[in-house]
Deep mutational scan, measured.
Amino acid sequence: KNALMQLNEIKPGLQYTLLSQTGPVHAPLFVMSVEVNGQVFEGSGPTKKKAKLHAAEKALR
């Protein structure tokens, strides 16, 4: 199970927000955030999926 699945089991129905998309078309950088218990966690990556995963990993720490 990855961090997204684990976080969804603990806190179902979380909303992930796209904060920014920067970089060239062939190498974009997405920044996504998720709010858990009033705290906002951000993650970035080359795809929205990876950015969401990194945000979930930070939220689980």
Rank of each mutant, 00 (worst) to 15 (best):
E35C: 14
A56D: 00
P46G: 08
Q6T: 13
K11G: 07
V31G: 06
L14A: 11
E35G: 05
G23K: 05
K50H: 11
L19D: 07
T17K: 11
E35K: 09
G23M: 04
G45S: 00
E35T: 09
N2D: 12
G43R: 00
H26W: 07
A27Q: 12
T17E: 11
S33G: 14
L18T: 07
A59W: 03
Q15G: 08
G45V: 00
K1W: 10
H54E: 14
S33E: 10
N2T: 12
V31P: 00
S44P: 02
S33Q: 14
L19N: 06
L4A: 07
V34D: 00
K48I: 15
P24N: 09
M32I: 09
K58T: 10
A56C: 05
K11P: 02
N8C: 09
Y16I: 03
K50N: 06
Q39S: 10
A3C: 06
Q15T: 12
P24Y: 05
N37L: 08
A55K: 00
P12E: 04
P12D: 03
V40Q: 12
E42F: 06
N2E: 09
P24F: 04
V34M: 05
E9Q: 10
I10Q: 08
K52C: 09
A51N: 02
Q39C: 09
G13N: 08
E9M: 14
F41Y: 10
Q21V: 11
T17C: 10
E35I: 15
N8A: 15
A27N: 10
K48D: 03
V34K: 00
G23W: 01
P24K: 08
P24T: 14
P24W: 04
K50S: 13
F30P: 02
K58N: 07
V40Y: 10
P28F: 02
G45L: 01
A27H: 11
M32H: 03
F41Q: 01
R61C: 11
Q21S: 10
A51R: 00
K48P: 06
L29I: 12
A59N: 00
L29G: 09
P12Y: 02
I10C: 07
Q15P: 08
L7E: 01
V31A: 06
V25P: 15
H54R: 13
V31W: 10
Q15E: 10
I10P: 00
H26Q: 14
L29D: 10
E42R: 07
L19Q: 14
E35F: 07
H26C: 11
L53M: 05
T22D: 09
S33Y: 06
L19A: 11
A27Y: 07
T22F: 07
N37C: 08
L60C: 05
L29T: 13
G45P: 00
K52F: 01
K52Y: 01
K49Q: 13
F41T: 04
F41R: 02
